[in-house]
């Protein structure tokens, strides 16, 4: 079995591309990759911290370089924290940037990996996902088959636990990891989305809109940009935008025979 991948992203309106603080890896679309051992990740660097885009980048790349092995990824976290510190230490900073950097950077992480299973089984492949924070995975088979780790638009709030570059009271990040897995079949599509997009997707789905179809139709950056800008501009009955103005990332993984 094989997979096809595509990724779409945009910074929040009013920000430059350089100010985009989500991350995803691998960062090049692929037509046909072997399913077995496929691994990808997205992350959302927290707006209120600095150098969080760099941290989100480190996390997604590390997840993939460990092939989604959770134990190895967790073991590598302290080294990643040091690496982040070295990267920003090389930058000359005024007093406020120093103080801000001292508080550390924070990011969500959502990783997916896929496996073939033994031949002649009635289900040909399985998947596993790990999440910290509110970036979400959706498995689509006609409708939403799995929504993880959040499954309702009302579940999103502004203070999820996030992976940090600084140790917090000796807290163990593994206690905040959420893990899920299941079967997958040819025709299944996985969407990985950072929080604003995931919240919008669930909300529009709850409202009965044909939102899944609109994502299937995405065929390039321009169309994604049109959808995002339209949904940011559209307002609900309370005057709130359908899609909150935030960095958005959509990673699509399609399963094929």
């Amino acid at each position: 079995m094989r997979v096809t991948t595509q990724m779409f992203w945009l910074p929040k309106a009013g920000n430059s591309v350089a100010e985009y603080e989500d991350a995803f890896w691998p960062n090049e679309a692929a037509d046909t990759l072997p399913l077995n051992g496929f691994c990808c990740a997205i992350a959302d660097g927290a707006t209120e911290t600095s150098f969080s885009g760099a941290w989100a980048n480190l996390l997604t790349r590390q997840w993939c370089s460990e092939n989604g092995d959770l134990a190895q990824f967790l073991a590598a976290l302290p080294t990643l924290q040091v690496q982040w510190g070295s990267e920003i230490d090389s930058v000359a900073m005024p007093w406020y940037a120093e103080e801000k950097a001292r508080a550390g950077a924070f990011s969500s992480l959502l990783g997916l990996r896929l496996f073939d299973v033994i031949p002649d089984n009635d289900w040909p492949a399985r998947w596993e996902a790990v999440a910290v924070g509110d970036s979400c995975l959706f498995q689509i088979r006609n409708d939403i088959a799995v929504a993880f780790p959040l499954s309702r638009a009302a579940d999103f709030n502004n203070s999820p636990y996030l992976l940090s570059t600084v140790s917090q009271n000796g807290e163990d990040a593994s206690e905040h990891l959420m893990i899920v897995g299941g079967k997958c079949y040819p025709g299944d599509v996985f969407y990985l989305m950072t929080d604003a997009l995931a919240c919008w997707f669930l909300r529009r789905h709850e409202e009965g809109k044909e939102i899944i179809e609109s994502l299937f139709d995405l065929d390039g950056h321009e169309k994604f940009q049109r959808v995002v800008e339209g949904q940011r501009a559209g307002k609900d009955a309370e005057g709130q935008p359908y899609l909150r103005n935030d960095d958005v990332t959509l990673y699509r993984v399609e399963i094929h025979e």
């Binding site: 350089a18 100010e19 209120e48 600095s50 150098f51 885009g53 760099a54 920003i88 930058v91 406020y96 940037a97 103080e99 801000k100 508080a103």
Partner: peptide, 14 residues
């Protein structure tokens, strides 16, 4: 004021 400045600080400035 210090906290506000730090809150508004990003890697590229305030």
């Amino acid at each position: 004021l210090q906290n506000l400045v730090i809150k508004c600080a990003k890697s590229e400035g305030v």
